[in-house]
């Protein structure tokens, strides 16, 4: 089982979920380039200018570890990354678990994605604000403790640390992506976990994904928000186990 974290966080987000599967499955956790403890030097603007680049990374992991019958659990944008990877090499994948997937976040004609284009721009501005705050507040602390860089991390928002420049570009790629045309190409069975009151991926988007993924199963969860793996790990684990 591969667990892929969504935008804004890193593999820590699976801390309540992944251990539940360690007994029955080989569990693979990773950080997307730019997030968590990934090697920032591996970031290439060209490669990661669309989600295919991230999908390629997933396939590289699968090849390097020679994984077969993969159950791919993707949260948020990683749900779509998993879909793209499974379209490219369907023989490697057994099942997909898509938590809060959205093929397009921005409204487009009759399609409701939940956001306007200006919202996404505003969100990028929001990132900038928090980046400034983060860098001004934290950087000196880290620099002042060269012997213990982890100290800085402990002091404040230590989880889901991301490189701000990469995060900004990842956000742009994520929230401007349009993968609606890719959905019908998927041949791998998929489970869609749809939360209540998810502003990032509203129920209408979950229905859209369900409708366009052949043979997909949709489970409407009681959990609210966009991160049931954190806010309702038990329900999330139960839903995944029920499916696989």
């Amino acid at each position: 089982m591969i667990f892929a974290h969504g935008y804004g966080c890193d593999q820590n987000m699976w801390r309540y979920v992944a251990p539940e599967f360690a007994g029955t499955h080989r569990v693979v956790l990773f950080d997307h380039v730019g997030a968590g403890k990934s090697d920032l030097r591996a970031y290439e603007e060209e490669r990661y200018s669309n989600l295919e680049g991230y999908a390629s990374d997933v396939l590289e992991i699968i090849h390097d570890l020679d994984l077969r019958d993969v159950i791919f659990v993707g949260h948020s944008v990683s749900a779509m990354i998993g879909v793209l990877a499974a379209i490219r090499e369907p023989q490697r994948f057994a099942k997909l678990v898509l938590i809060g997937p959205s093929p397009r976040y921005i409204d487009d004609g009759d399609y409701v994605g939940g956001f306007a284009k200006t919202d996404v721009e505003e969100m990028l501005a929001s990132l900038d604000s928090n980046y400034l705050g983060w860098s001004s507040a934290i950087a000196p602390v880290i620099m002042g403790n060269p012997d213990r860089p982890e100290l800085g991390a402990e002091l404040t928002n230590s989880f889901c640390a991301t490189d701000p420049e990469i995060a900004r570009k990842f956000a742009f790629v994520t929230f401007t992506a349009d993968n609606r045309d890719d959905l019908p190409k998927l041949r791998t069975p998929a489970l869609i976990l749809q939360c209540t009151d998810d502003v990032i991926a509203p129920a209408v988007v979950g229905d859209y994904v369900h409708e366009h993924l052949r043979g997909s199963t949709l489970v409407a969860m009681n959990a609210t928000g966009h991160c049931p793996n954190l806010s309702a790990p038990a329900e999330t684990v139960a839903a995944i186990k029920g499916y696989i």
Binding site: D119, S126, G225
Partner: peptide, 15 residues
């Protein structure tokens, strides 16, 4: 604001 909603969901809440 809508942009901050996204940030809230993707950063604040998980953290």
């Amino acid at each position: 604001s809508p942009g901050d909603k996204i940030y809230h969901e993707t950063h604040y809440a998980p953290l």
